[in-house]
Every structure is written in structure tokens, then in C-alpha cells.
Simulated scan of single mutants.
Amino acid sequence: MQSDVTIIGGGPVGLATALSLEALGLSVTVMERAPASTLAEAPFDGREIALTHHSVSVLKNIGAWAHIPDVAISPLREARVETGRHNHPLTFDTRGRGVDALGYLVSNHLIRRALYAQASERPGITIRAGTATQYVRNGRKEMTVVHDGGEETSRLVVAADGRFSQVRRLQRIGAVVHDFRRSMLVCRMAHESPHHHVATQWFDEGQTIALLPVNGGASSVVLTLPSDRIEALRHMERDAFNAQIMQRVGNRLGRMRLVSTRHVYPLRGVYAHRFATAGFALVGDAAVGMHPITAHGFNLGLKGQETLAQEVAAAMEKGAPIGSLSVLRRFERRHRLATAPLFAATNGIATLYTRDEMPFRELRRAGLRVADMLSPFKNAVTDMLMDRQKTA
């Protein structure tokens, strides 16, 4: 079989890439190991995605936003950062900005379903579910993806198969891997006190907790601890788990009860040494896998595929090959500029705010107090959180 573009990985960024490139008039094939039933009805995985205004615009432009139920979209009206107990929080809100939300929380599995639903409707997209990629063969003018069902030849191959990308390794592209030696447990908890659509990131001694407000009197709890302690919580009896979470969040939301399955993810940051070679590009976590502390992973993934589509469109206008090294190097430069500073800053913040020695505790307390008094800093961070730039 032959198509203009082959995308390896049918996750959210892979499907978004397919939709963006198909909108340019290209034929796109998506290779995904998971069966079609899993793609169509992606199961709850515990993760809530904080979408920026720009990301919402991207999802609208590629047609996926319409597939997300309104009731599942929770506005984020304020964000608070706290450290220790009884400390002055650093707060971010939308006052004076003409909008009612910093961003919007949507469950990851609903984003996956929406993107698959839209991609399935597009005539130029072929989704080969239940298909495992064996290797990619580089040619002078075309690329060949060898999979367990045959071969797919195309002008451009895009790897979107996650932060531990097999295809990236097969292309001999290395990556910086930062192991935070922690795992995060995510689940949804109902509670008796209202959250007022305020998200809280709390760096307490020995633990990091995020409380993300979702509709229906519930919050997503994101708890970060050493892996062995997380596993104990993962398998804890339900009533004991409820009591443990209430104690860990300082009873700030009243009585809480588990209303979802529990999911655990190891925390590792990944940054590929290269994002492109001739005929080949990396997007999503295969290029940059972020620590979730700044909630920018999926947003950066959407930006990366958008940048790739823009450079491909520019090449098509000039009659240049879409897989040429010069085209993909322009994509790489732009995406590196957008991601490298944030990746470094995120790793630094994650390290500073998860160390419990006295110098680190005092430094972060002082840092939050100073930051909350600096209006220019707060405005800059709020702008970054909202990201209201227009979609190109």
C-alpha cells in the first residue's frame, strides 16, 4: 500500500497529526497496535488534561472538539500553588482578561475517543488498528514501514508512539531521559465540599498532590510518591484508601470517596536528541515527554504536530518534497525553541519542589511569597497557562 504520510502511533497526538495533514490534501495511514475497539471506546485511564485556549482552538479546527460532550468539559477558573502547610499560596486567575477560564479540563480517554471519531470520518485517513510496526526502511525518495501485515510506502513517516518510542530507537535517535524516581497515582474522588473550579498543586513534605476540579462534585487526585508507597496505595482497600487520601489532602474537601479506577504512571522526562531526519519526524511524547507538574505535555504535543503541518504546507506551496531534510529541519528548529526552555524549567521545578531537605523547603516557601508579589511574573505565567494565541 502507498500513502503520502504514514503515522506510527494512534494516540491523541498521532491522530491529531493525521487530521492536520489530511486537511492539506494528503493521504495518511495511521499504524496502531491497539485494536479498533480500544481506539473507539478508549477506557478511563485516570488522566485529566488541562487544555489551553490554543489547544482548544486546534481541536476545534481539526473537528475533534465537537465530539467531546459539553458535560465533560470542566472550566479551570483559578490555579493555586502551595508548599508545606499554612503557607501563603501563589494564585493565578483570569481577572481582567475577558475570559472566564484559564483553560479546560477534559479526561484523556474522551480526547482519544473524539480524535478517533473524527479521524474515522475523514476519507483521506486510513487507520490500521491492531497493526505492529517491525521497522522503517529509509529510501532515497520514499520511506517504507514494514509491519506485521505487510508494507506501507510513503513520502514521510511520523513517529507518535510515546516517550519510549520503539521507532525512535530503530531510527537510531537517542534521547535524554530524566528519571524522577517517583510514580504518580491518579484517580477521581467525589467530595462534599465544593471545589469552585480551582486547581491546587500542593508540595507537602514527602509528597506532591494535585487536585484538579471536574464537573459533578468531584476532583481528579494526582498523588506523587516513591514507587513502592504508590503501589501500596494502589492496592489498598477502598475505605482505607479514602481515609488515606483525606488525610493526605488535609481534609480540605471534606469527606471523599473513590469513584473511579486507580492508575499508576512512573515519572520520567524524555527529550529526543533529534526531532527529524530525512523523511522522518517525531511528534508528541516521542519527541518531548514532559513531567506533568506544569500540565503542558499534551499541549506541547498539539503544538508540535501543528508546527509540522505548517512546514509541510509551506513545502507543498513551493513544490518541495514534504519529507526533505530542509523542511523537517525547519520543523525541528521551531519545535526545539518551543520546548527546550520549558523542558529544562519543568525538570528544575520538579527537582526543587520534591526535595524535602531544609534548604529546599525554605527556598520554595520564599520563592512562592516573592512570586505572588510580582505582578509581571504572575501575568507571564498566566499567559503561558492560558496560551490564547491564534491558530495559524
Rank of each mutant, 00 (worst) to 15 (best):
F92C: 13
P123Y: 02
I111F: 04
R97Y: 03
I125R: 08
P123C: 01
G124K: 05
G103L: 09
V145S: 03
G103N: 09
L110N: 02
P89C: 08
N138W: 05
Q118D: 08
R137Q: 10
A101S: 03
L90P: 10
F92R: 01
I111W: 04
R128F: 12
H88Y: 05
R113I: 02
T144F: 07
I127A: 07
P89R: 04
E142H: 13
L90G: 10
A101Y: 05
H147P: 01
R113T: 00
A132E: 09
L110R: 07
A101L: 05
I125F: 14
Y135H: 15
A117W: 15
G96W: 11
E121T: 01
R112D: 01
T133F: 04
R97Q: 06
A117M: 12
V145A: 06
H147Y: 03
Q118V: 08
Y104G: 09
E142A: 14
V146T: 00
G130M: 14
R128V: 13
L105W: 06
P89H: 06
Q134N: 11
D93Y: 02
G124W: 11
L115Q: 08
P123K: 00
A129R: 03
G98R: 01
V145Y: 09
A117R: 13
I125G: 01
D93P: 09
G130R: 13
V146H: 05
R95Y: 09
G139T: 03
L115H: 11
L115F: 11
Y104L: 12
R113K: 12
V146L: 09
D93S: 15
A117F: 14
V146A: 06
G96R: 05
A119F: 11
F92S: 07
A132H: 04
G130K: 12
A129Q: 06
N138M: 12
E121S: 01
A129F: 01
A117L: 14
N108I: 02
A101D: 00
A117S: 15
K141E: 11
P89Y: 01
V106G: 13
N108T: 03
T131W: 09
A132C: 10
Y135M: 13
V146S: 04
G139H: 07
H109W: 03
T91H: 10
A119C: 04
E142Q: 09
R140T: 13
Y135S: 13
G98V: 02
R137M: 12
A117V: 14
V106H: 14
H109F: 05
E142V: 09
V99I: 06
R95L: 12
G130T: 08
N138L: 12
V106D: 15
Y116Q: 11
P89E: 00
R137T: 10
V106P: 09
G130Q: 10
A114C: 06
L90R: 11
Y135F: 15
D100C: 06
G96Y: 04
R112Y: 02
L90S: 09
D93L: 12
Q134I: 14
A132M: 11
G124Q: 02
T144K: 01
L110C: 00
Y104A: 07
R95A: 15
T126A: 15
L110W: 00
H88L: 07
E142R: 11
V136R: 11
R140N: 12
P89M: 05
G103I: 10
D93M: 12
